[in-house]
């Protein structure tokens, strides 16, 4: 656990850089977190980020890739285009949420 400053906010992050306190996330953090992984946010990104935040608030867990795809009506292919390589991880990272648990 380390403390870092992103967009003027002092935040606690884990060894992979994920926020350890999702409640510390604010919308102005997202573009900066995105920049750190080489992404520039578009409206399409924001739709997904807002869904992830709202879903986490009600479910207490980060949505899986399939859940994001089904609930926001976004093909998985598009999720890979928006968040290349590791969309589930990257969406969670930008949204200030824990890495989704691959169920055991």
């Amino acid at each position: 656990m380390t403390t870092t400053t992103i967009a003027g906010h002092e935040l606690e992050v884990n060894e992979e850089g994920f926020l350890t306190h999702p409640e510390q996330w604010t919308e102005d953090l997202a573009p900066e977190l995105a920049r750190l992984i080489g992404l520039e946010l578009t409206d399409a990104h924001w739709t997904l980020i807002r869904f992830l935040r709202q879903d986490y608030a009600t479910e207490g867990e980060t949505a899986t890739l399939r859940r994001v795809s089904t609930r926001t009506d976004t093909p998985i292919k598009s999720l890979f285009a928006l968040f290349p390589g590791k969309p589930a991880k990257k969406m969670a990272y930008v949204s200030g949420l824990p890495k989704p648990k691959g169920c055991v």
Partner: peptide, 9 residues
């Protein structure tokens, strides 16, 4: 595997 390693835990 869709995971980033051999297992989740």
């Amino acid at each position: 595997t869709p995971l980033d390693g051999a297992f989740t835990k």
